[in-house]
Design a protein around this nucleic acid. Structure first.
Length: 970
RNA sequence: GCCCCCGUAGCCCAACUGGCAGAGGCAGCCGGCUUAAACCCGGCACAGUGCGGGUUCGAGUCCCGCCGGGGGUACCA
C-alpha cells in the first residue's frame, strides 16, 4: 500500500539547476500530481459510501447512519466543444476545497459532477458537421473529464452521468408523467400545515365520480361522455396542453419560456427577435406553486440577491378585484392594488386583447372628446385599428414605446361602483392582457401611468390621497390621508392608505362588488420545444387528439433517427412562420401501433422535446444512487443525504448542503428545479422541502483584452506594457487599448488550465485561483501573478524536503513557544476562514506560518505535519506527497483537520493603544488580564498623553481593556 | 426610472460586535547568493479608504446626499 516516496529523481525539464534535482518545479509538480491522481483512482479514495446498497467506500464499507452527511454540488456543466479556460474551474476548485475540508472534519461528503448534455450548441454543431449530436456530445464530455481530472478533484466518479444517458432520460420522462398525472388541490392540507398540494389526478376523477366535487360546468360526472371527462381532467393537470400566446422565435425555430426571453424581447440564446403567437403547446402549472415558491425562500440560505430576483419574478401582489358595470354591455373585472383610491377612478382602460372589445357601440356617445377618437368616425373603426396596430407591434417596439401613452376610446361607459359616476372605457397597450384581469380602473391622481394617459387624453383627475404640503408633481403614490372618498354608506376620508384599503375591501366584499385578491407576475412554464436534441415527451395522441401517458413500462422513449436534426428555422423576423419539430420527420416513429389496454391501436406521438431545463431539474437526486433504476430515488438515501435536519446545519427545508454556481441561473434553473422538487415532495417521493439548502454564487474570472487602432483584438498574451505608449500597452510595436471582459476566443485573451498545468502544476493553479480574492467577487486573471502561489508551495516543499538530497529536513523537536503560539493561532484562524469559504484569507495565514518556518534553523515535525494537513484541501497533491514522505502510509484524505490547543491562543501580554481624542499618542505593553482601573492609571501617566493633553483637564476616559484607552480632554 | 452589489497602495485584495488603516500576493527598489543572470534568500518604500455632509471620545466600518463601475428589472395596475 505504501508507495515509493519518489520516482522523480530524474532532472525535470524546465531549467532546474542540477544542484537542486528536487526543487518543486512545474515538472516535479506534474510528476507528483499525475502519480497521486492515478493512485487515488486505483484505490477508490474518493468513493463515497452510502449507508446501504451497492455504493461503498474504496475499502468496501458502508457509512454508519449517524455519520454526518454533507452533500456538495456544482451547477453542472454543459460540455462545450471549445474546452475549458481558466475561469471555468473556479467553482469546481472551491467546492473541492470545501469537500476535502469537510471530509477531514469527519463528514461523509458526497461530491460528483454530471453533464447537462442536451441542448442547442450540440445540436447546432451536429447540424454543421452532419455528425449525430450524441457523438459530439460524448467526445466533448471525454475532453472535459480529462481536463478536470488533471485538477485533482475529489469526485466520486462512479456517480457521474449525463442527462442524455438513456437511463437518465427514462426518469426525466417518468417525472414528467408524475406531473402530468397530478392536479393541484389548493385546499388540501400538507404535512407541514400549509394548504395546497399536488395530488394524483385519479383522486380528482374519483371525487368527480362520487359527486364530492362539482364539475366545471355543473353537470354530473355520469352525464359526461368519455371524451368530455378526459377534457375536464386534462384541464386540471399540472402538465397540460393549451393554445395560448407563446414566445415564438423563428430564428431558432422553436418556442421559448418567458424566462428565456430577455428584457428587450429577444431570445436569451442567439439574441433573435421573439414574437407572441397563439400556439398549442405544453405548459407546466408552476403558478399553482407561486406562493410556496415565494414563501419558502425564507427557509433557505441563499444570497439575498437571488432570493429577491425570484420574489420579483414571481411578482406576488395583493389587492382587490372590483366589478365595474358597463352600460349596455357586460361586467368588467379590474385588478387593483389600490382599492383605497376607487373614488378617484375617472376612467377605465382595458388591454387591446380584452374580450370586452369584441363588441363596441356603433356610435360615439354624447360628450365624446375629440382627442379620444383617434380621428375615427365610429368606435368600431377606432378599436379595430388600434387592436390591429397593437397586435403587429413586436416586443422591441413595445419596449421602445414604453412611457409614450397611446390608446383610443372604446365608446363604452362603465359605472364607478362607489359613486355611480359613468366613466369612459379606453383601450391602451400599457395595460397588458397577461397580468391581473387585463383591465384597470385608472386613477390618475395616484398612478404615474394613469396620470400620463390622463394628460394625453385630457381626462379629469380627482385626488383621493392628500399629497404633502407644497406637492407640485403629478401623481402622488405615497402615503397620506384619504380625501374626497365618501358616499352615503362609507367614508374613507382621513384614513391612512393601509386602513383605507382594508375598509373599502371589506365594504366591496359586503356589497358583492369585489374581493381581496392576490395576483402574480409569474406565468405557467412553457415546456415544449421544437428541437431535436432533447427528451421526447412520453405522450401519444388518439383520434380525439387528446394526450395519453405512455405506461412506465414503455419508458424511456428514445430519440428516433431523423434525416435532419435541425429545426426548420426562418428569417428571424418572419412573424408568419410556424414551428416544425424535427421529430415529425420520422413518419414511422410518429405513427405507432401500441396496446395501451384496448388492444393494438394506432397513435400519434408527440413530436416536441423538453426544454434543456428538464434534465437539470432533478439531477441532484441522481447523484445519490445513479445505478439504482427501480425507483427515482431510494427514500432512505434521500433522507440521509438531503432530508430535513440531516446534519447539524440543515434547517427544516433539507436539501443540498452547498450548491455553487453562477448567478445567471437565478430565475431559470433554480426556480424550475424548486418547482419540480415541490411536486415530488407533494407526491411523497422526497422528504426535503427544498432542493438546495445553501446556494453560493461564485464570481467570474475575467481578463484584459486589447484592441489595436482598427478596433481588432490582438493576442493578449503578446501585449507588453510600454510606458512610452499613450495607452500604456503595445503589441508588435503598435499601441493598443486595454479593455476588460470575458475570457474567450473572440477577445483573444483565453488562457487554458492546460497551460497552467504545464507551466506551474495543478496545485499552484488551485492555490492561485483560491487566493485571488473572495470567491463571490469577479476579478481579472493575471498570469504573471501565479508565480507567487508557486513560491508558496516551493517554500512549503523546502520546509520539509531537502531539494538537493530529497531527505526529510524536519526534526523531532519541541517547537519554540513563539512557533507554537503562531501555529495554534493559525490553526484557529484557518478553520474559521475555511468554514466561511474565505480561502483567500486562509491561504494568507498559511503563508505567514510557512514563512515563519522558513526562518527557523530546523523545522519541527509537528509544525510541518500540521501545515501539510491544513494546506491539503487547497493543494492536495503536494500535501499527499509530503505526508507520505513524512512517513504516513495512508492518504491524508480522512486525516483529522488540525485542532488548535486553546492554551496557546491566550497571550500573556498585549499592546494597548493609548489615544487622546481618538488619535494614537502612545502604546503600552500590558498583561492581557489587566483591570480597567489599573490600565486607566497607566495610560494617563504615559508621556504621550501628557504631551497631547498639554495641561488640559480630562473629561472622560474610555477604557476597553486590555487593548485600548481613549482619553477625552475637557 | 426602481432595486441590489462594489469603490482601501501602481495592481489583486485584508481589516472581528465602530477601536493602531495592512494580513497575503503581484509589480517596483536595495542588498545577499552567483564569474554573470535567472531561481532563491533578506530588506525597503508606497495609500489615509471615490466625493461632500452627519452621528460618535473614536468612522474604511453606521446614517444622509452625490460620483464612478457591475448586475437585475421595467407600462405588473
Amino acid at each position: 500500500m505504501h508507495n515509493e516516496p519518489t520516482t522523480a529523481t530524474s532532472t525535470p525539464v524546465g531549467g532546474t539547476p542540477p544542484e537542486a534535482p528536487l526543487r518543486y518545479t512545474a515538472a516535479l509538480a506534474a510528476d507528483i500530481e499525475k502519480r497521486w491522481q492515478d493512485r487515488w483512482a486505483e484505490l477508490g479514495t474518493f468513493h463515497t459510501p452510502n449507508p446501504d446498497g451497492p455504493l461503498t467506500d474504496g475499502a468496501g464499507h458502508h457509512v454508519a447512519e449517524q455519520t454526518p452527511a454533507f452533500f456538495i454540488m456544482d451547477m453542472f456543466p454543459y460540455p462545450s466543444g471549445d474546452g475549458l479556460h481558466v475561469g471555468h474551474p473556479l467553482g469546481y476548485i472551491a467546492t473541492d476545497v470545501v469537500g476535502r475540508y469537510r471530509r477531514m472534519c469527519g463528514d461523509n461528503v458526497l461530491h460528483a459532477l454530471g453533464y447537462d448534455a442536451f441542448g442547442l450548441p450540440a445540436e447546432q454543431y451536429a447540424v454543421q458537421t452532419g455528425q449525430h449530436p450524441r457523438v459530439t456530445t460524448e467526445a466533448n464530455i471525454a475532453t472535459m473529464r480529462r481536463q478536470l481530472r488533471r485538477l485533482g478533484l475529489a469526485h466520486d466518479e462512479r456517480r457521474s452521468f449525463a442527462t442524455t444517458d438513456s437511463d437518465y432520460v427514462r426518469w426525466t420522462q417518468w417525472i414528467f408523467l408524475q406531473v402530468f398525472s397530478s392536479w393541484y388541490d389548493a385546499d388540501a392540507v400538507r404535512p407541514d400545515g400549509g394548504r395546497g398540494r399536488a395530488r394524483p389526478i385519479a383522486e380528482l376523477e374519483a371525487e368527480y365520480a362520487a359527486g364530492e366535487r362539482a364539475t366545471p360546468d355543473g353537470r354530473s360526472w355520469a352525464d359526461l361522455d368519455v371524451v368530455e371527462r378526459r377534457r375536464v381532467l386534462d384541464a386540471s393537470r399540472l402538465a397540460y396542453v393549451s393554445e395560448t400566446p407563446v414566445n415564438w422565435c423563428p430564428g431558432l425555430g422553436t418556442v421559448l419560456a418567458n424566462e428565456e426571453v430577455t428584457v428587450d424581447g429577444r431570445s436569451e440564446r442567439g439574441n433573435y427577435p421573439v414574437f407572441k403567437r397563439n400556439l398549442r403547446q405544453w405548459n407546466m402549472r408552476i403558478t399553482a406553486y407561486a406562493d410556496r415558491l415565494a414563501d419558502d425562500l425564507d427557509l433557505i440560505d441563499w444570497p439575498e440577491k437571488v432570493r429577491s430576483m425570484q420574489r420579483n419574478w414571481i411578482g406576488r401582489s395583493e389587492g382587490a378585484q372590483v366589478t365595474f358595470e358597463v352600460i349596455g354591455g357586460t361586467e368588467v373585472e379590474v385588478f387593483t392594488t389600490r382599492p383605497d383610491t376607487l373614488f378617484g377612478a375617472t376612467f377605465m382602460v382595458v388591454a387591446p386583447e380584452h374580450p370586452l372589445l369584441d363588441e363596441v357601440p356603433a356610435e360615439w356617445p354624447d360628450g365624446t372628446h375629440k382627442t379620444w377618437t383617434g380621428g375615427h368616425r365610429t368606435p368600431v373603426a377606432a378599436v379595430a385599428e388600434y387592436r390591429t396596430a397593437s397586435a403587429a407591434k413586436t416586443a422591441v417596439e413595445r419596449q421602445a414605446d414604453a412611457g409614450r401613452k397611446t390608446g383610443v376610446f372604446t365608446g363604452h361607459l362603465a359605472i364607478n361602483p362607489v359613486n355611480g359616476e359613468p366613466i369612459p372605457v379606453f383601450t391602451a397597450d400599457y395595460v397588458l392582457m397577461g397580468y391581473g384581469t387585463g383591465a384597470i380602473m385608472a386613477v390618475p391622481a395616484q398612478d404615474e401611468r394613469d396620470w400620463q394617459f390622463a394628460e394625453a387624453f385630457e381626462l379629469p383627475v380627482v385626488r383621493t390621497v392628500a399629497p404633502p404640503e407644497g406637492w407640485e408633481g403629478g401623481a402622488y403614490t405615497g402615503d397620506g390621508p384619504a380625501i374626497n372618498s365618501s358616499n352615503e354608506e362609507i367614508s374613507l376620508d382621513g384614513m391612512e392608505v393601509a386602513d383605507a384599503k382594508a375598509t373599502i375591501t371589506a365594504w366591496l366584499a359586503d356589497k358583492g362588488l369585489g374581493t381581496g385578491t392576490v395576483t402574480y407576475r409569474l406565468r405557467d412554464w412553457l415546456f415544449s420545444r421544437q428541437r431535436y436534441w432533447g427528451e421526447p415527451f412520453p405522450i401519444v395522441y388518439d383520434e380525439h387528439d387528446l394526450p395519453i401517458a405512455l405506461p412506465e413500462s414503455m419508458l424511456p422513449v428514445d430519440l428516433p433517427e431523423v434525416p435532419d436534426y435541425s429545426p426548420r428555422t426562418f428569417e428571424p423576423d418572419d412573424v408568419h412562420s410556424t414551428p416544425e419539430p424535427p421529430l415529425g420527420r420520422n413518419e414511422e416513429w410518429v405513427h405507432v401501433t401500441l396496446d395501451l389496454g384496448d388492444g393494438p391501436r394506432t397513435y400519434r406521438r408527440d413530436t416536441n422535446t423538453m426544454p434543456n431545463w428538464a434534465g437539470s431539474c432533478w439531477y441532484y437526486l441522481n447523484y445519490l444512487d445513479p445505478g439504482r433504476r427501480d425507483v427515482l430515488v431510494d427514500p432512505a438515501l434521500e433522507r440521509y443525504w438531503m432530508g430535513p435536519q440531516h446534519n447539524a446545519a440543515t434547517g427544516s427545508s433539507g436539501g443540498v448542503d452547498l450548491y455553487v454556481g453562477g448567478v445567471e441561473h437565478a430565475v431559470l434553473h433554480l426556480l424550475y428545479a424548486r418547482f419540480w422538487h415541490k411536486v415530488l415532495f407533494d407526491l411523497g417521493h422526497v422528504s426535503s422541502v427544498e432542493p438546495f439548502r445553501t446556494l453560493f454564487n461564485q464570481g467570474y474570472i475575467q481578463a484584459y483584452a486589447y484592441k489595436d487602432a482598427r478596433g481588432q483584438y490582438v493576442p493578449a498574451s503578446e501585449v507588453v506594457e510600454d510606458e512610452a505608449a499613450s495607452t500604456g500597452f503595445t503589441w508588435e510595436g503598435q499601441e493598443v487599448h486595454r479593455e476588460y471582459g470575458k475570457i474567450g476566443k473572440s477577445l483573444k485573451n483565453s488562457v487554458t488550465p492546460d497551460e497552467m498545468y504545464e507551466a506551474y502544476g495543478a496545485d499552484t493553479f488551485r492555490v492561485y485561483e483560491m487566493s485571488m480574492g473572495p470567491l463571490d467577487l469577479s476579478r481579472p486573471w493575471e498570469t504573471r501573478a501565479v508565480v507567487g502561489s508557486q513560491r508558496f508551495l516551493q517554500r512549503l516543499w523546502r520546509n520539509v524536503v531537502d531539494e538537493h538530497t530529497g531527505e526529510l529536513t524536519v526534526v523531532d523537536e519541541e517547537p519554540a513557544p513563539e512557533t507554537l503560539r503562531l501555529l495554534h493561532r493559525t490553526i484557529d484562524d484557518v478553520r474559521t476562514e475555511m468554514g466561511a469559504m474565505r480561502f483567500n484569507t486562509a491561504i494568507a495565514k498559511l503563508i505567514v506560518l510557512n514563512n515563519h518556518m522558513t526562518g527557523l534553523a530546523r523545522v519541527p515535525r509537528v509544525v510541518a505535519e500540521a501545515v501539510v494537513l491544513m494546506v491539503a484541501p487547497i493543494a492536495p497533491h503536494i500535501s499527499e506527497e509530503l505526508w507520505s514522505r513524512l512517513g504516513h502510509p495512508d492518504s491524508l484524505i480522512r486525516e483529522p483537520y488540525p485542532v488548535a490547543d486553546p492554551a496557546f491562543l491566550v497571550e500573556d501580554t498585549v499592546t494597548c493603544v493609548v489615544q487622546v481624542q481618538g488619535k494614537v499618542r502612545d502604546r503600552l505593553e500590558v498583561p492581557a488580564s489587566i483591570g480597567e482601573d489599573e490600565l486607566r492609571e497607566l495610560a494617563l501617566a504615559t508621556a504621550g498623553v501628557r504631551r497631547a493633553l498639554d495641561g488640559r483637564e480630562v473629561r472622560t476616559v474610555v477604557v476597553r481593556a486590555p487593548r485600548l484607552v481613549n482619553v477625552v480632554p475637557a
